[in-house]
């Protein structure tokens, strides 16, 4: 569903992961320049993914996309290095503006 909310003009290859661990593995393998990360996931949640990215000093560009709308959740992911927080249900315009804000060519 998120994939359909990405800008249609954005020419990218998409890798999907079903949980945080898979996402982190794909990230480590250099399969992503941008990661859209949910927080509530089995096996490894989004916070742990961010912690690991930070710990391993991976080059990170993570946009958190979550239904967890507690203000504290937003604060925490920003502290853990997330570039943006977009709440679900996703408004495609917000994705586009977040990407543009960081100079990603669409």
């Amino acid at each position: 569903m998120l994939i359909k909310s990405l800008p249609s003009t954005w020419d990218v290859e998409i890798t999907q992961a079903v949980n945080g661990k898979e996402a982190l593995d794909a990230y480590r393998a250099g399969k992503a320049d941008v990661m859209f990360l949910d927080l509530t996931m089995p096996v490894m949640d989004g916070y742990e993914v961010l912690e690991n990215i930070q710990k391993e000093g991976l080059n990170s560009f993570v946009i958190v996309v979550s239904a967890d709308i507690q203000p504290l959740a937003q604060e925490r992911v920003k502290k853990l290095g997330a570039m943006a927080f977009i709440k679900k249900p996703v408004n495609p315009d917000l994705i586009e503006s977040a990407l543009k804000q960081y100079g990603i060519a669409l």
């Binding site: 239904a67 967890d68 709308i69 679900k88």
Partner: peptide, 12 residues
């Protein structure tokens, strides 16, 4: 997905 969004609001 629908439940996740609803529970996010409840959790908040």
């Amino acid at each position: 997905e629908i439940t996740n969004i609803a529970m996010g609001q409840a959790g908040s």
